[in-house]
Amino acid sequence: MVKADVQLDAKGLSCPMPIVKTKKAMSNLVDGQILEIQSTDKGSKADLPAWSESVGHQYIGVTEEDGVLFHYIRKCSNDTVVEKTYEPTISIEQIEERAKNGGLILDVREEAEYAFGHINGAKSIPMGDLDEHLDELDKDQEIYVVCRTGKRSDLAAQKLAKAGFTKVYNVLPGMTNWQGDLTKTI
């Protein structure tokens, strides 16, 4: 099971109902939350990614089980450009090599985003859960904090620095620019 904040049952409905229901459900989510849409409409495979693209949300992926499609969409209402303040940073091309030499890639995206594709060996701790999991991290290890665009990882890196971690790097620009292989856990 992929973790989502809100579930929407659109099973048995045909076009355009899954889209209409998704739009309504999405308005009750806050930025960054994930909506799971359960649908039996095969057209939703093309429609929901297209809708997300057009409205500006992040379509994460789809799984299928017993004829039911489970779509995951992360709400991005206004991806305003927030200045990234944390130093030092590291480019995404460099981290795989650095991780091989003993560093840790820390993926702070939501569990669903991680499940649909992450860098092999990356550890998952969603940004919102970081405080409770600090004891799983090693202060002597280099940590490369990655998210989708570098925004959440910037905040996470600042959190880590405050908690006394000194070898922390914010990975830029983020998974949107990752060219390597993706590992899936779905």
Partner: peptide, 11 residues
């Protein structure tokens, strides 16, 4: 109405 509602649901 399908096209209209789909478009409206896409803002």
């Amino acid at each position: 109405f399908n096209i209209a509602t789909a478009a409206a649901a896409s803002d």
